[in-house]
Design a protein around this nucleic acid. Structure first.
Lengths: 327, 327
DNA sequence: CTGAAAGCGCTAACAA
DNA sequence: TTGTTAGCGCTTTCAG
């Protein structure tokens, strides 16, 4: 049987608003009376009805979190950090996975709106919905990516890629390839970094991942398709745009009957997830906990002050060098 | 500016309850009028206020999901499947991580209650709160474990362990060890299975994980502590109670200066997560998607009919044999 | 077929 | 210090 303030009030012989005052720690309540009410509450397993509070206060203490993908272990670490950070501030998270589907993503946002969330933390699938996000009437912070015109928090991807380029070059590599989406910010960074070092990226060294559903299966297939009929691939090092890809690439090589890649191919990933730690893959570390907390705090400050100018925060990356890229 | 039915009503020149009827597809509304109202709604980015609905209907379409641990990739797969299953039925999930802390777990449950969740999906940290769970006034289904007196859905762990025992024995192993908590259902199963095969488990072959916080770091330390001063460990095969442990065990051996374990030690894990797939570790597969859907459906049926007798569902496990346990 | 009225559980302004 | 009253946005009788 679910208790309400009204029933507590009856049991304690006070009015219902008095119960409300006691629960909310209003100081203008007689001590003895407050104690009596508290006693009744404790004996009754009453919990406040947050739906009623939400309706009354137009504030839900609910944050909607939209993930682009819940199969990449990287996002799990984000979720883990987020659950803790929000809980400590009295917020709850309601989560959705868009699974790289922008239509799904938009529906999820609508759902968040109807749930009266106070704010949305967004890990976007793509730029597809960005315009719609602009005139949402609820605060939104984008994280793991930087987007113009939005509050956004991310590691500095460009700098991360430069760290990789510098590392590979200092290891003596000149023939550096890339595996990832053919249109991608990190690929642009790689191009720029290599160009700046006088060894422009050869477009033939790009192994494109074109499937939209970025399942590990799709990664496998995309790479296989690319190297089909090739019996050599002129690279001494490859940058994989994330750890999952790096790992799938390594696994694929074990399966290949004809392996067009160099025996001692250097491989670098991105995100420094448990995958790269376990597999000794060099990778760019992201300060996930810090990033998540900053994103959440930024969202809170935005909830308090919707008019503040948009903030972009880029955190410094760190390259963790492991066996996969040293001789 | 957040729209309400009242405002839609004014714009469409009807009463507010009529707007409600149109939105909820009540058939007793004049077609033309309904069309007019729909048009206004579409032009206005109105979304229904679920907090108000929850208050009015005493039903939130919210499911609380409590995880014992969000760092084990196994639970991520559960979460992924759950998000999809619940969304398709019009439910939202609000999640909490107990991080193996029963006190935190109980607080999380209280929080779920105040959020007016329709039901709770529970992955328990321990038996600590079970009594409290019994007289919760909201439906609860326990998953990934079977518990007496509760609706629960899980893979048949006992059968899974028997598959492992049979496999190892048929591979010729007689000296079989265990790594995991020293008080554990799977350990009991192993004892029974080996006993039934006439090769009782030697208690000296149990490497106990005793730290309560089951971080990978703790696993490392526990194993290290155990083998300290030992220069041999009389086992030809080891069953690790989950994949994370199996993997940590394998990694640890790489680090050891003195490795007391046999060169060709067979290793088997449990859960068949991405870790065992990637690392070619034999493991017991859990049909996570199926299990999750069944648990959720069971919860829904319990929400509809709270009086039904408790149901325990054990799904058949499947042993996936990989390189780690064959010669 | 449509509107008026009540009430879900809570908070806050006001009165006493 | 406490109680009375109103109202958040919605659904559901009940009249008309």
């Amino acid at each position: 049987m679910k208790m309400t303030m009204k029933e507590i009030a009856k049991l304690a012989n006070v009015s219902q608003p008095t119960v409300s005052r006691v629960i909310n720690g209003n100081p203008n309540v007689d001590k003895a009376l407050a104690k009596r009410v508290m006693k009744v509450i404790e004996e009754s397993n009453y919990t406040v009805n947050r739906a009623a509070q939400t309706l009354k206060n137009s504030q839900s203490y609910l944050i909607g979190v939209s993930f682009s993908d819940l199969s990449n272990p990287y996002f799990i670490e984000v979720l883990n950090a987020l659950e803790e950070a929000t809980r400590k501030e009295g917020y709850n998270i309601i989560i959705h996975n868009s699974a790289f589907n922008p239509l799904q993503e938009w529906q999820n946002i609508q759902n968040f709106m109807s749930r009266q969330v106070d704010g949305i933390l967004m890990i976007p699938t793509s730029d597809y919905n960005m315009d719609r996000f602009k005139d949402l009437n609820v605060p939104m912070v984008i994280t793991t990516q930087i987007k113009d015109g939005f509050d956004s928090v991310s590691v500095d991807h460009d700098e991360g890629v430069r760290l990789i380029a510098d590392h590979l070059i200092s290891e003596g590599h000149r023939k550096i390839g890339y595996i990832g989406p053919p249109v991608d910010f990190k690929l642009d960074s790689l191009r720029a970094a290599l160009y700046d070092n006088g060894i422009p990226l050869d477009e033939s060294r790009i192994i494109p991942l074109t499937s939209n559903e970025q399942s590990t299966y799709a990664i496998h297939e995309d790479i296989k398709n690319f190297i089909k009929d090739k019996d050599s691939f002129d690279c001494s090092a490859v940058f994989c745009y994330n750890d999952v890809t790096a790992l799938e690439f390594i696994r694929l090589q074990d399966e290949l009957e004809v392996n067009p890649f160099a025996e001692d191919l250097a491989i670098v990933g991105f995100d420094d997830t448990m995958l790269s730690k376990i597999f000794q893959i060099s990778s760019v570390h992201q300060p996930i906990q810090e990033m998540t907390e900053i994103a959440f705090k930024l969202l809170l400050s935005r909830i308090e002050n919707p008019e503040k100018a948009k903030t972009k925060i880029e955190l410094p990356p760190k390259l963790i060098v492991r066996k996969s890229s040293i001789k």
